[in-house]
């Protein structure tokens, strides 16, 4: 008993720094945000009611979910193809792909967003090529709209989509596709029936990761959306710093957090069920 309680005490002692860190820097601020969302300007759920009643707010919300959803689908699709290429690539090609994938991560999101503006604007390189090859007569609007935001966000998210899928592919026993072939499956059937189902956990992980990151994007939509595409993070920032409607900002932040937690929880349930083989 004595040894046990001493162990418990030591355990708590070691845990203290991280507990203090989390309490001060995480639990307290989040709790505060929650509190503000139901107390500002006055006690009650009126901030949450706005979500249903206010059309502008609903539009921001829908835009956010739509852009985050589309970003997720495109980034994960591209990520899957890239991951598959990495999985089948030789050593040198693999190193090259990893380098190209990681290099943008060392560049600031802001720099990348402005680079995309330069590339995509009416007199930018992309439109130059499109007009030069005669594909269009006049420049296509590629920035200051959802297309621009999508391009920028997908670009940022591709590494996050690729790596979890690649990790899962690497973990698949190389003999499984061989076994399928030996049992009479063509390469396509082997992919559809064996390889793809086994990569589903990776696709799930990639989708969750990309979606919960995309839904809170701030810099990229501001720069590439040019004020025309307002996502929830920008809207919150406006409430906090300009219109000073803190209660509304806090409510939106809370809803955002709830959505993220919901997805994480749903994903964990799914993977646990898979592992139990149910």
């Amino acid at each position: 008993m004595i040894a046990g309680s001493r162990q418990t005490r030591a355990f708590l002692l070691f845990l203290t720094p991280s507990l203090v860190f989390l309490t001060v820097l995480f639990a307290y601020p989040v709790g505060k945000v929650l509190l503000v969302s139901v107390t500002d300007p006055e006690l009650g759920l009126q901030n949450y009611r706005l979500l249903i009643e206010n059309a502008a707010l609903r539009r921001v919300f829908l835009t956010t979910v739509r852009i985050a959803g589309l970003t997720t689908l495109i980034a994960v699709a591209v990520g899957y193809v890239l991951a598959y290429r990495m999985h089948t690539a030789g050593e040198r090609e693999l190193r090259l792909i990893i380098f190209c994938l990681m290099f943008p991560l060392w560049t600031s999101v802001l720099v990348r967003a402005f680079s995309w503006v330069t590339l995509l604007q009416s007199n930018g390189i992309v439109n130059g090529i499109l007009i030069g090859t005669g594909l269009t007569e006049r420049p296509i609007q590629l920035v200051r709209n959802e297309i621009g935001v999508l391009i920028g966000m997908v670009h940022v998210m591709i590494p996050y989509a690729t790596l979890p899928i690649y990790a899962v592919m690497k973990g698949i026993d190389a003999r499984l596709p061989q076994a399928a072939r030996s049992l009479g499956a063509s390469s396509l059937q082997t992919f559809v029936r064996i390889f793809f189902p086994l990569t589903l956990p990776g696709i799930g992980a990639a989708m969750i990761l990309v979606f919960i990151t995309s839904i809170g994007f701030y810099v990229t939509p501001i720069v590439l959306g040019g004020g025309k595409v307002v996502m929830i993070a920008e809207y919150i920032s406006v409430q906090i710093t300009e219109t000073l409607r803190w209660g509304l900002g806090a409510m939106l932040a809370t809803v955002l957090l709830a959505i993220v937690l919901l997805f994480v929880f749903a994903f964990r349930r799914l993977t646990v069920l898979r592992e139990q083989g149910a």
């Binding site: 076994a179 049992l183 009479g184 064996i194």
Partner: peptide, 16 residues
């Protein structure tokens, strides 16, 4: 391989 019609028991079995 898929047309050879050989049954293979792999090392480690390779069950799906």
């Amino acid at each position: 391989p898929e047309r050879r019609n050989f049954g293979i028991v792999f090392q480690g079995y390779a069950l799906f």
